[in-house]
Each structure stands twice: as C-alpha cells, then as structure tokens.
Design a protein around this nucleic acid. Structure first.
Lengths: 203, 203
DNA sequence: CCTACCGATCGGTAGG
DNA sequence: CCTACCGATCGGTAGG
C-alpha cells in the first residue's frame, strides 16, 4: 500500500495527496509528538516542499484535526461493528477488546489512534469539542458491554469508574506492546477479558 | 538534596532557586507539554529573565531530566514505604494503590508524575536509560504485590501482562480524575482494589 | 504545487 | 542572575 503516484498523466489511480499528508502527519505526530513535528517533516515525508501542505490544509492544527478524527472514526466503527453482533455478552466483550486493540496496536490504525490518545490537547477548541462528544459516544458502547456482563453475573462492578479502569488498561497497552513481542493482539484481548471477568484459567 | 549554595551572606531562608525552576518546569511541562514549553515560560514563572535558568541547568533537556527523576523518586519512595509494612497482601495492595494515586493525582506530586508519564520520550539518552531502569525496579514491587495476592488466593492471574493491565488502569486515572469530582483518591484506590480482586461488594 | 520569502520565536551564550 | 544578542528554525503566505 501507499504506492506513490508522481506523474501527471495517466491517473488511473487518483493520487489523493490529502490522504497522503494525513497518513504521514499521523505517523510523525505519533513518533515525535505534535509540537515537535514540523511542517517541513510532513512535507518531506510525502515529497513536497515546505509550503505545499498548506494547499491542502489551512493550518498545522487542521492537519492534527484530520488525523485525530480519522482515528476516532476508525476505532468507533471497528468496535461498533462487533458490539451489535448479537453474541453472548462475554463473546461480544472479547470481540470489542480485540477490535479496539487492533486499531490501537495494528499497523493500519495505530498512528491515528495514538495521536488521538496523546496529542488531542493541541487541537483547536472546535475540533476538541467534537472529539469529546465522539469519545463519550464511544465509551457508551463500553458501558453497555459492562452492563451486559453484570446482568449475566460475570462481573460485580459495572460502574463508571470500572469502565474507566478498563479503558485505562486497554489504552495503556500502547506503552508496552511490541509487534515482535511474545503476546499477540488476540492474546492480549483474551487475557484482558479474563482479567476483568476474573476467570480462573487462561493460556 | 542537591541544595545549591549561592549567596555567602544572610541565608536565613535559603531561596533555592534551582528547586523553584524544577517545580515551575514540572507544572508547565504537565500543562503544555515539553516541546510547547519555552525557556521564557519557565523563567517568567519564577521571575527570571530568559537567559537565567541556564545558570542552573545547561540545557532545557536537563530541566526535563530533573523533573522526571524527581517524579520517579517520589513515587518509588511513597509506594515502597507501604509495600514493606508487613500487613496482609490485600491491605498492602490497597495501600500501594493509594500511595501511587496520591503521587499521580495529589497536588504535590502530580506535575512531576505526569511529566514522567507523558514527556519521557524527550529525555536525552542517558537520563532515559536511567529512567527505564528505575521504572523496572518500581514495577517489580507491583509484581511482588500481585504474586502475594495470588499466593493468598485473591486473584487468579499474576502474570506480567496482568501487572501491565493494572499499571494501565492506575496511570490512566490522570486522564479522567478531577480534584473536584465525586471520587476521592482513597475511593478510587479502594475501587481499583476491588476491581482487580473481583470482590462482590463495595461502596 | 513550487519558489522565495517574512516576521516571530526559539534555545542558548558572552560578558559582566 | 541580567543585558543584549545570535543563528537557526518555525508556521505560514504571495505570486505564479
């Protein structure tokens, strides 16, 4: 993927330079943080000169906004898809964990998701407010999942604070997960499900 | 420690400007992040001109190093103190949670701790390596606490990954805790203990 | 999307 | 610890 198209003629596959910028910005914001990333870094990563990204975005903050919203939508969509699959509360819960972790740790989504988690404070007020709303809507799905687990007698505590503990354990994986490590994303999802539900056996 | 001696005369209450700088830098690094904080911000916060902090620190990175190491030492000391108190594994565990959260969320320690958690990537390699060592040593105490809980049959999983889930739930509190909110630090510690141990009742 | 550039600001220093 | 300053770099823009 990310096959760059340079020539002007024969645009069979339209280049979409804007999406290239968003992807490069996401990677750089993730690696170096938003304030430490320069427009020149981003431009260079997509083979542009320093002034050119401003043809696609008015400001650097707007680039951050695009990255963060992309991350928010991707994770919401991925988790929502399995949240409504109609399986048992436990199977649904584990599938949601897997979906969230795949966005957070997998190759396609991690730069967007990590930027969402760690750079949102640099957003302008408008986008920031929108992200807060989307985040609340997102976490509601998790609250529902916990409510279902409690209804089925699988957990004792489905309070708001319990949800925040869960989200914390989930999002903190960014700090220690290594793609070449001993744990796969699916295994981590499984162990976290057991950790929350308090099962006695796992492999 | 590291009390710098400047004046020769009349040091009734020694100012210790170095500590002032570290405190101000911690607050600003926490609020705005390391790259977005300028030397002029820090200098201004302690009533100095922009060149003067360099009388106390060679570089801005060294200021970050001082803040992060202060945070690391403070949290280590606070948790170690209650880890060896000889109480039951559950009481010790909850006391450790409380100590960690007090450093993370309480007024004295939070700027240092938050900077440790979120700005360590901007450290120079030497200090960074030291912080990694100290962090490993710190997390060993938590591993021991989990081992003790398992020995006493209070939890089913005391694996490394379980420890990382716990640390994640713990450190993520920074993202949602509000001093004027409905939950006190002690209450959060109590609920997290129950969450991990899977108790059926809590208030 | 490039060229050429601007004003502002940054970390850091020399000399006192 | 201040004054005065430096070179480098930054986000952003005009004009094509």
């Amino acid at each position: 993927m990310a096959a760059s198209r340079i020539k002007a003629v024969a645009k069979v596959v339209e280049p979409n330079r804007r999406a290239d910028i968003v992807r490069a910005a996401g990677r750089l914001f993730h690696e170096k943080g938003y304030p430490a990333t320069t427009i020149r870094d981003i431009a260079g990563a997509v083979g542009m000169r320093s002034g050119s990204p401003f043809y696609h975005f008015k400001t650097k903050q707007d680039m951050l906004g695009a990255v963060v919203l992309e991350g928010m939508h991707a994770i919401h969509q991925a988790v929502e898809k399995v949240a409504v699959s109609g399986k048992s509360s436990r199977a649904t819960f584990e599938a949601m964990l897997r979906a969230h972790l795949n966005q957070l740790l997998g190759e396609e989504g991690r730069d967007f998701a990590a930027t969402l988690l760690h750079e949102s404070r640099h957003l302008n007020p408008e986008v920031s407010a929108e992200v807060v709303l989307l985040k609340d809507r997102y976490e509601l799905m998790w609250q529902q999942a916990l409510n279902d687990l409690k209804r089925d007698g699988l957990i004792a505590d489905d309070s708001t604070v319990a949800r925040l503990f869960l989200i914390g354990a989930l999002n903190w994986t960014v700090q220690w997960y290594r793609p070449d490590g001993s744990q796969s994303v699916a295994q981590i999802a499984r162990k976290l499900a057991s950790f929350v539900i308090g099962n006695s056996r796992q492999d």
